[in-house]
């Protein structure tokens, strides 16, 4: 059974009237696994943030199926790693849907956190602080947090950036397991080979949607070339967008 999980209608997201990505329409089916690709500055992270509900649209709408639980993995560079909390506390934040902002962790919750550490191969790292971790270890910990979030829709911003091959393979296997469990995956990725080998669907962005469909159809030389040209045509002194119409 396929049903629509996310519906984007003429969605524009940006900062201070400047759109990072504009007039995107499309649907994400439940249980699909989509790679979001495009040049730097294409608006991939912004669109993912919008889908995560971490950013309000400038215009257009983004509708989620009711009761959709979302897990969002920000780029690990966005974390303040000098802040002195333990890895346990960072991972346990994945139980936010149970604890809320104020609730405590039950014995069962603590067991679940320890189990998540084991699943990502970080047992024994619970008391480490964030500055004492390698990039790969931090990413594993953030995946442990995703496990605890137990979400229907998993949004991953560059989940495989700057990590070694072993970690990359482990994390990719985890993403595929989630997909096999029927969860919906959307991941921002730069490695086209990984996208071609593992992601059935792709969404090519260049500040607007260039193509969206099966990876084979989307990642053609023509589409990729077009995406690059559209980014190069970006104008800092832009006038009011013509698609906004006359008001």
């Amino acid at each position: 059974m396929t049903a629509t999980l996310l519906t984007l209608t003429d969605l524009t997201l940006g900062y201070d009237r400047h759109p990072a990505v504009h007039h995107v329409s499309g649907r994400i089916e439940r249980g699909s696994m989509t790679a979001m690709v495009g040049p730097n500055g294409a608006g991939k992270s912004t669109l993912l943030k919008g889908m995560a509900g971490a950013m309000a649209p400038l215009s257009g709408t983004l509708a989620r199926a009711p009761d959709t639980r979302i897990a969002y993995l920000p780029q690990s560079a966005a974390l303040d790693r000098s802040f002195p909390i333990s890895l346990f506390d960072l991972v346990a934040a994945g139980l936010w849907h149970r604890t809320g902002a104020f609730g405590g962790l039950s014995h069962k919750d603590r067991l679940a956190v320890h189990e998540a550490f084991e699943r990502v191969g970080l047992q024994g790292f619970e008391r480490r602080t964030l500055d004492a971790l390698s990039g790969g270890q931090l990413q594993r910990a953030l995946f442990a947090r995703l496990i605890l979030q137990d979400a229907d829709l998993i949004l991953l911003d560059e989940p495989l950036a700057a990590i070694d091959t072993k970690t990359s393979a482990d994390l990719l296997a985890m993403i595929k397991t989630w997909h096999a469990q029927g969860r919906t995956i959307i991941a921002v990725l730069h490695d086209m080979q990984i996208v071609r080998d593992h992601f059935p669907r792709s969404l090519l962005l260049a500040r607007e949607c260039v193509a969206h469909g099966t990876t084979e159809d989307v990642l053609t030389q023509t589409n990729l070339g077009r995406a690059r040209q559209m980014i190069e045509a970006f104008d800092e002194e832009a006038h009011i967008c013509a698609q906004e119409g006359v008001s």
Binding site: A52, M55, Y72, L73, P74, L79, F83, L130, L155
Partner: peptide, 9 residues
């Protein structure tokens, strides 16, 4: 620590 994650939950 992770403001973007917090905004999502």
């Amino acid at each position: 620590v992770d403001p973007a994650f917090l905004r999502s939950v």
